[in-house]
């Protein structure tokens, strides 16, 4: 059985995080995250370095490839291997993300095609991190079409969180767009639904008995504490409740500001939303903790379709 552990989990997380950060800045640039957004740069800056660093970590998980690094170049060879696709996708994404980052840094308009190609490669990178595991029939727990969906949604969510955090600390212009909260609410909600579907599929028995044993590790056995505490409570349900409250608050303050006699309360609402901006940093961190936990748990819960015993 394989030996994948922390390094692979962190690599899968960073791959998703970098891809999500790129897509956040891309969405902001295209006006999808509100008019006064400050998320249109930070994600571009960190996306290339994050994915490159993740790929660099991967080298240390290799056996002979670490001793004879020239062998690594052959990883471009087998087109039937999802890992080979990943090598192409990641190389292309890192390349494009660095170029795009350079344009943004120099405050120059990057060619439109470049940004779109980068976005496409970012989505492919996020999907690839899930596909790498999902195609392995030898590990029934991974071998699910829902796996890449969970990974892509988590990548978008963690990417949005990281970009928001960075923008808060490094951008002079601060903005708290209701749209960002709505998008994040949607992402966290979708991730919860995708995870429910993922486990429902496993417990329906369609992936065999071993997949259920893996799922049990997460839900009730040795990995239950990080699963429920770090992933579900801190990483998903906490942020879900927070974003839900926040988006209700935004609606209320919009309503208030539309009524002429209520200016005082409206101002108060705006002030409280600025305060909640600080709180949202905490939840951005929580979303990323959840994202890393998700990758670790999925890698650690892998059980082979056959345990090597007879009888």
């Amino acid at each position: 059985m394989g030996h994948w552990g922390w390094l692979i989990a962190i690599y899968l997380f960073l791959g998703g995080l970098g891809a999500g950060a790129y897509l956040t800045s891309f969405a902001a640039e295209k006006g999808l995250l509100g008019k006064t957004t400050n998320l249109n740069r930070a994600g571009y800056y960190v996306s290339g370095p994050l994915v490159a660093f993740g790929a660099f970590l991967l080298i240390f998980d290799l056996g002979q490839g670490l001793k004879k690094p020239w062998l690594i170049i052959n990883m471009f060879l087998n087109f039937s291997s999802v890992m080979t696709w990943g090598i192409y996708i990641l190389s292309a994404f890192i390349f494009v993300a660095f170029i795009k980052g350079y344009f943004v840094w120099k405050k120059k308009q990057a060619p439109g095609v470049l940004s779109y190609v980068g976005a496409l490669l970012a989505l492919s990178t996020a999907a690839y991190t899930g596909m790498l595991l999902a195609v392995v029939e030898g590990v029934p727990f991974w071998n699910s079409y829902i796996m890449p969906v969970v990974f892509v949604v988590s990548a978008l969510s963690t990417g949005l969180s990281l970009t928001s955090l960075l923008a808060h600390f490094f951008e002079k212009h601060q903005a708290h767009e209701a749209r960002v909260t709505q998008v994040h609410l949607g992402l966290v909600g979708t991730e919860i639904l995708a995870l429910v579907a993922f486990f429902a599929l496993i417990y329906s028995g369609s992936q065999g008995a071993v997949a259920k044993v893996s799922a049990n590790l997460l839900l009730t056995e040795s990995l239950a504490i990080p699963f429920w505490l770090l992933l579900i409570v801190i990483g998903l349900v906490g942020p879900l409740v927070y974003y839900l409250q926040l988006s209700r608050g935004y609606k209320k303050s919009t309503l208030l500001s539309e009524e002429p006699g209520m200016h005082g309360e409206a101002k108060q609402a705006t002030r409280s939303s600025a305060k909640s901006g600080k709180l949202s940093l905490l939840f951005d961190g929580a979303v990323m903790v959840g994202g890393l936990t998700l990758r670790c748990l999925i890698v650690f819960a892998a059980l082979p379709v056959w345990n090597g015993q007879i009888g």
């Binding site: 394989g2 994948w4 998980d61 056996g63 062998l71 890992m83």
Partner: peptide
Amino acid sequence: CVGCGYCLYACP
């Protein structure tokens, strides 16, 4: 072989 371990997971 680079020792990535992917085949160890793939082989049932």
